[in-house]
């Protein structure tokens, strides 16, 4: 038990150092010569999971609308699903759902790729060529996460709100105009900004966990599988706890 705690602390330290180094090299990697690597990662991050995200966001909005709508109908207040869905999407479900899906799809792919590179000596090859693996591999992924996570989250929010509107219209008899009026009346800018802040932090968490697990991979293909699984599990845990803490911080 004591040994595991020490090991976790040590790994956290290594991951934080890696993150620090990656941040420091951002100016270098976004220079014209190397921008290509960053753009490529941004493309991968945003495009790879857009399909899944659309479906998940749509149904998240629909479920939120249906559940709250059925309760609200008992008081004849169905129209309030507009603000209920929008506020919950912006503050909580948008960033949260986006982060979970990106961690499971993009994060796991990241750690599998870096893990494979580690066990097949490609990381060693970079080191011998005096190319810093963190600069070359982590920084572009970190920048991609920081820039794309808020964008994808906004997309998730929009689709979720649309999903809610569809359910409102078809199941609860709330017109689109009434739904939108109610939403804009109660949702605040603060909700959006806190959500976007969360998404950026979640992005940093995913990139850090995925790259750290990738670099710590040992023992061939089995190790790559283990690193991928750990990436998903560890990111989920950290995203959940951090998400709660950010909510606590801004909404007392």
């Amino acid at each position: 038990m004591g040994r595991n705690t020490l090991l976790t602390l040590r790994n956290t330290g290594i991951a934080m150092l890696m993150l620090f180094e990656a941040f420091r090299d951002i100016p270098y990697m976004i220079s014209i010569r190397h921008r290509h690597d960053v753009l490529h990662q941004q493309f991968l991050t945003a495009i790879k999971s857009l399909g899944v995200i659309t479906v998940v966001a749509l149904f998240t909005g629909m479920i939120l609308a249906l559940q709250t709508g059925l309760e609200l109908r008992r008081f004849g207040q169905e129209v309030y699903i507009g603000s209920a869905v929008t506020v919950v999407m912006l503050r909580e479900m948008g960033p949260f759902m986006t982060a979970l899906i990106i961690a499971a799809s993009v994060g796991s792919a990241m750690s599998a790729q870096i893990g494979t590179m580690t066990v097949s000596e490609e990381i060693s090859a970079l080191e011998v060529m005096a190319i810093k693996p963190v600069r070359y591999l982590v920084t572009p992924r970190l920048v991609a996460m920081i820039t794309m996570m808020p964008l994808i989250t906004v997309y998730t929010n929009i689709i979720g709100v649309v999903g809610g509107a569809v359910v409102g219209q078809t199941q609860l008899g709330v017109s689109i105009t009434a739904y939108m009026d109610n939403a804009t009346q109660f949702a605040e800018n603060k909700d959006l900004y806190v959500g976007l802040l969360k998404s950026v932090i979640f992005g940093i968490i995913i990139a850090t966990v995925a790259c750290h697990q990738g670099f710590s991979t040992t023992q061939g293909a089995v190790g790559v599988g283990r690193a991928t699984r750990k990436t998903v599990v560890v990111s989920f845990l950290i995203i959940l706890t951090t998400g709660y803490m950010i909510t606590r911080l801004f909404y007392q």
């Binding site: 097949s120 000596e121 490609e122 060693s124």
Partner: peptide, 10 residues
Amino acid sequence: FLFQSAALMQ
């Protein structure tokens, strides 16, 4: 350094 596995970036 030529690695035994060549170690090319895939």
